[in-house]
Amino acid sequence: MPSQDDLHSLSEGENAAYPPFDPRLAVRVREQLGLTHGQVAWAVSAFRGHPLHPDVLLAWERGAEVPTTRQIDALAAALWCSPGDLLGEPATLLQCRTLLGLTVEQVATMVGMTRDRYAEAERRNRWRGSGRQTQALFEVLRPPPACFVDACGRTGQLRVLLREAVTGWWPNYVRPVAKIVPVAPAEIRGALEQLHLAYQRIDNHGRTGAGAEAVEREALAFLDRVDEQLWRRLRTQEA
Rank of each mutant, 00 (worst) to 15 (best):
L57W: 04
N204D: 15
N172S: 09
R30P: 06
Q71G: 03
A59Q: 09
M110Y: 01
S11K: 12
P2H: 11
P83G: 07
P2G: 08
P23F: 14
R142F: 07
L197T: 09
Y118N: 10
D85R: 15
E105C: 03
D150I: 04
L102D: 01
P19T: 07
P182I: 06
Q229R: 14
T167I: 00
T92E: 12
E164D: 08
R24G: 11
R28K: 15
Q194C: 04
R30S: 09
L234F: 02
G211K: 13
F148H: 10
E12D: 12
L93Q: 09
P83R: 11
Q157I: 01
G112K: 12
P171Q: 03
H50R: 14
A178C: 02
M110L: 13
R126C: 07
V27M: 08
R232S: 11
L86I: 09
Q4I: 10
L93T: 10
F47D: 13
R232P: 00
A76V: 08
L161Q: 01
M113W: 10
A121N: 14
R115S: 05
Q229P: 00
L33W: 05
E14K: 04
H8I: 12
F222L: 05
A239E: 15
G206P: 05
A16V: 08
V56N: 07
P54Y: 06
Q237D: 02
E213V: 12
D203Q: 04
S45T: 13
D55Y: 08
G209Y: 06
M1I: 07
H8T: 11
L195N: 00
Q106E: 14
S82L: 12
L161K: 00
D227R: 02
G112A: 06
R117C: 10
A59M: 02
G84L: 02
A46T: 14
A74V: 07
T114S: 15
A121G: 07
V44Q: 06
A64E: 15
A191R: 05
V27Q: 13
T155S: 10
A17T: 10
G34Y: 11
H196Q: 06
L220T: 12
A186Y: 01
G13S: 09
P144I: 04
A108Q: 09
P54K: 06
Q229S: 01
E228I: 00
L87R: 10
V174M: 00
R124G: 02
L94D: 03
V226D: 03
N125Q: 06
S9D: 11
G49D: 12
G88Y: 05
R24A: 15
D116H: 12
Q237H: 05
Q4E: 15
D224M: 02
G190Q: 03
V107K: 02
A77D: 13
S9P: 00
A43M: 13
W60Y: 15
H8E: 15
Y118R: 13
L93K: 11
F222C: 08
Q39G: 02
L223M: 08
R123P: 00
D5Q: 14
I202G: 01
